[in-house]
């Protein structure tokens, strides 16, 4: 697994969250998640000004063979969308922590970030998930 950016917080459902200086929380999916999905072909983003709750389905990311729900890592209001994904969904594969971001939230309770995993805990989480995938009965 590639080096995980240490400044991000991670959800067990493979979203990352970054608290910016302006107080907004930027959301994307991890390198591990994009690799599991394969070539991303479409991202369905939430709407601007939409209220989202932590752990609520807020977006959908599609590859040719799979579709995954994206859960908001914190509660708040959607204040920015990455419109570039409409024409270039491959940014999610190419630059998951940068130009492949999904949306930004104005958090109602920034302390929710503390409930997420740090890089090392998330890394462990991914390794155990990968081991499960090797078994025959992973339903």
């Amino acid at each position: 697994m590639n080096e995980l950016p240490g400044e991000l917080a991670y959800a067990p459902t493979h979203e990352w969250a970054r608290l910016d200086d302006d107080g907004r929380v930027v959301v994307g999916i991890s390198d591990y998640a994009q690799e599991q999905l394969g070539d991303v072909v479409y991202v369905e983003l939430p709407e601007l000004d939409q209220d989202v709750a932590a752990a609520e389905e807020s977006a959908v990311v599609e590859s040719v063979k799979a579709a995954s729900d994206i859960y908001a890592p914190v509660s708040g209001t959607v204040v920015a969308l990455n419109d570039a994904l409409a024409d270039a969904p491959e940014l999610v594969n190419e630059d998951p922590y940068g130009r492949g971001w999904f949306f930004a939230i104005e958090p109602s309770d920034p302390s929710q970030l503390e409930d997420l995993l740090d890089a090392s805990a998330y890394s462990e989480h991914c390794e155990s998930a990968a081991q499960d995938d090797g078994g025959d009965e992973d339903a």
């Binding site: 072909v41 479409y42 599609e62 590859s63 040719v64 063979k65 799979a66 579709a67 729900d69």
Partner: peptide
């Protein structure tokens, strides 16, 4: 556009 369909999206 198969990610819309039942064999991938199932209940959704």
């Amino acid at each position: 556009l198969q990610a819309r369909e039942q064999h991938i999206r199932r209940a959704k």
